[in-house]
Write a protein that binds this DNA or RNA. Sequence first.
DNA 1: CCCTGATTCGC
DNA 2: GCGAATCAGG
Length: 184
Amino acid sequence: MTEAGAWTDERVELLKKLWNDGLSASQIAAELGNVTRNAVIGKVHRLGLSGRAKSPGSAAPRPRKPAARPPSHPAGHQSSGSAGLTRGNTALAPQFAPEIEAEAQVEREPAPAEDVVVPFSERVTIMDLREYMCRWPMGDPTSPEFRFCGGRSATGLPYCAYHARIAYQPAADRRRDRNKAIRA
DNA sequence: CCCTGATTCGC
DNA sequence: GCGAATCAGG
């Protein structure tokens, strides 16, 4: 039986596929199993796959990175039960170019408040809004009862995963979560 | 608060 | 080669 944390050809190929598909390192790690997102990223770099969705024209400035690493190496604290690598599996937004209608004037629907998807307890006012909270508007902004979704927003997104989908509605809906029943 | 990839460096 | 720790950013 091969080691679970070994990079076999199959795993490497799956890694390439998923990485090329736009999945995040943590998602790939969760999909592969028994590996951390760091391991995935490390392997990705080692394979030379780094820089997936970066600006090709602009060379990323890579000055110096002190990377001060203290001596003590605790290491080996991957709790979360045993093999359950299911922490923040937040859906990330695919990198698609926002369609801009320069000629046609598209009627903007006044973003129907999907109060049904967000419990009242989760809603927040602008006062309680944090950077990591979904800014999906709910209700009439002029109303004192105006609230925001307040859900956990994905990285770099103003909305939570759910509202991000509604807001952008990508042409090609990328399947995010896959039913992984293989967890015997 | 949460996450993302990038990099370093001991193993 | 591997990946935890760390950095830097969103």
